[in-house]
Design a protein around this nucleic acid. Structure first.
Length: 198
DNA sequence: CCCTGATTCGC
DNA sequence: GCGAATCAGG
């Protein structure tokens, strides 16, 4: 694929929004995150804090094939860190483009002391699946919202209104937003309950 | 381990 | 100009 105007534009837009190179690459398709980063640099918008701020301080290191290295650069700005405003909205982390399945936790904000949201694990689900969940929840990695990725189970555990809240975080099942155990309770074959008429 | 961006260099 | 390989870090 080539960098058409449209693609470059989307790149700029997403980069400006704080999207990661890999996310942009996936969105564009046909390119790797490296390609995206390379392009970003060529476009001269490497540091998202381009504005009036000075360019990012050049880092020193590659010694492999390098032969012409003048001298290490002293750092004129010891305290003025580049300050990362690159703080992508938390939503971006949890709501993967494709995995838009039902994520109970992000439904709404629950005021403290209020009834908990319908915990799927509280309904009628295969006792086995339930037991499985209780089991694995002990091994859960207990990730925070920001720590979730596309391959970490996004199953919420606990009360969102308290500190006792976290996400499973175990490896997800291929193509699913949850780990195996949670997929089991999240996606019922829809026949777990004998329906009234039939 | 997963991820992030940064840089280099052969093409 | 492009982007894989590599580097450096979280």
């Amino acid at each position: 694929m080539s960098w058409t105007d449209e693609r470059v534009e989307l790149l700029k837009k997403m980069w400006g929004e704080g999207q990661s190179a890999s996310q942009i690459a996936k969105e564009l398709g046909g390119v790797t995150r490296n390609a995206v980063i390379g392009k970003v640099h060529r476009l001269g918008l490497s540091n998202r804090a381009a504005g009036g701020a000075k360019a990012a301080e050049p880092k020193e290191k590659p010694a492999a094939a390098a032969a012409a290295k003048p001298a290490p650069k002293p750092k004129p700005q010891p305290k003025t860190e580049p300050a990362r405003p690159a703080t992508p909205p938390p939503a971006a982390a949890a709501s993967a483009p494709e995995t838009k399945a039902a994520i109970p936790a992000r439904k709404q904000i629950i005021p403290a002391g209020q009834p908990l949201p319908p915990q799927p694990s509280a309904n009628e689900i295969s006792p086995e699946a339930l037991a499985k969940v209780n089991e694995i929840e002990k091994k859960a990695k207990k990730l925070t919202l920001m720590e979730l990725t596309e391959r970490t189970c996004k199953w919420p555990v606990g009360d969102p209104a308290t500190e006792d809240f976290w996400f499973c975080g175990l490896p997800v099942q291929q193509g699913k937003p949850y780990c195996e155990a949670h997929v089991g309770v999240a996606f019922q074959p829809m026949s777990a309950r004998r329906d009234r008429k039939r």
